[in-house]
């Protein structure tokens, strides 16, 4: 090692010591402190690199070990998810049918959206579906979790039962729902007809027209509340019992305990549930097709949803660029909603 290098190392070392001393003595400004810490890390790395010379540095070795942990998953993830996503982004600005030459479209794909009635219908329906499903599922699963967190007989059975709809396959479960809600033969309409004397021509058409979105929402709540119930249950178990005891001593009733203990304590759980619910709701596709699909599996303007339109444009019309543009709209909404929720969460927790 040359003398020049040693001198350089010594100089860096002294800089490092200075910084460490500064941090140890305490820095008022948090930002400043962070800055110093990251500089320390950087200096430490440079020094160790220079010291070890041509040999692999310790940092490098540590990185290699870490990457060996990540690699099996990350390679698969990068190849099968990340790369296609990058392509999907690019596609939104192109015109391509999957075979012929690619044409650049600029923003034309996005401009087309404005005058597309099917897109507008799909957009509207998706929003209505989400606005209906997210709060309903959240309330239902929270209520269920609170009930099943009490000491009740057969709790395990009830918990298992409420998880059944989530576990059951969509193909199987939707075909049962279609039987139960069959407009002229199903038991639900039979009861309406025989017990509540609803005239035959007034019987609800559950899977078309104005009711179809309601059916989709009810079905989703039924199918997924068990799943979110488990998450809430986990959240509830994290609340210390002492809080409730203190509440009881203060004479709080059930509602007050919920309002002032349970609900605030579950804030981060609720945040997680709402984010996951929103993301999953915007992805709705198979439920709509399986419950409301017509003779050729087609959805009408009262039941079409964004992902259905993405699928249709891509795999039926082979307008991949346009399909990707719709997909980007979907992604943008999901992102926006998530960011808003994050911001809100942060604001209320500060």
């Amino acid at each position: 090692m040359s003398e020049k290098k040693i001198a350089e190392i010594n100089m860096l070392q002294s800089q490092l010591d200075e910084l460490i001393a500064k941090v140890c003595s305490g820095i008022e400004d948090k930002k400043e402190e962070k800055k110093c810490l990251s500089r320390i890390e950087k200096l430490r790395r440079t020094i160790s690199k220079m010291r070890s010379g041509s040999k692999l540095s310790r940092d490098f070795k540590r990185d290699i070990i870490s990457y060996s942990f990540i690699a099996p998953n990350f390679i698969g993830f990068a190849v099968f998810t990340l790369i296609p996503i990058v392509f999907a982004f690019a596609l939104a600005f192109l015109k391509w049918d999957g075979s012929n030459a690619i044409e650049f479209m600029g923003l034309k794909n996005f401009k087309r959206l404005g005058s597309d009635v099917f897109f507008k219908a799909a957009f509207k329906n998706t929003i209505i579906y989400c606005v209906g499903t997210v709060p309903l599922t959240m309330i239902a699963s929270l209520a269920l979790a609170i009930i099943l967190n009490q000491k009740v007989r057969g709790r395990a059975i009830f918990r298992t039962l409420s998880f059944f709809p989530y576990v059951g396959s969509l193909v199987a479960v939707t075909s049962v729902w279609k039987m139960l809600f069959h407009p002229s033969k199903g038991p639900i309409n039979s009861i309406l007809y025989h017990v509540f004397n609803v005239p035959l021509d007034k019987l609800p058409q559950w899977f078309s027209g104005g009711l179809v979105l309601l059916s989709l929402i009810l079905f989703s709540v039924w199918k997924y509340m068990g799943y979110y119930m488990v998450i809430y249950l986990a959240g509830l178990q994290g609340i210390s019992g002492e809080l409730y005891e203190a509440g009881s001593l203060d004479g709080a009733n059930t509602w007050q305990k919920f309002r002032y203990i349970t609900w605030p304590q579950l804030r981060s759980t609720t945040f997680f549930v709402v984010v996951m619910l929103t993301i999953n709701c915007f992805k709705v596709y198979d439920i709509a097709v399986m419950l409301a699909g017509g003779g050729s599996g087609e959805l009408t303007t009262s039941s079409t949803v964004l992902v259905y339109y993405i699928y249709q444009k891509a795999f039926v019309d082979w307008d991949l660029g346009y399909s990707s543009a719709v997909a980007m709209v979907l992604f943008a909404i999901v992102l926006l909603v998530t960011i808003v929720q994050f911001a809100y969460q942060k604001k209320t927790s500060d």
């Binding site: 190849v79 099968f80 296609p84 392509f87 990707s324």
Partner: peptide, 16 residues
């Protein structure tokens, strides 16, 4: 990618 619906990139993924 958790926030990215699969349908958004299923076409390029299929081709690949």
């Amino acid at each position: 990618t958790i926030a990215m619906p699969w349908q958004v990139y299923m076409v390029p993924q299929f081709l690949m």
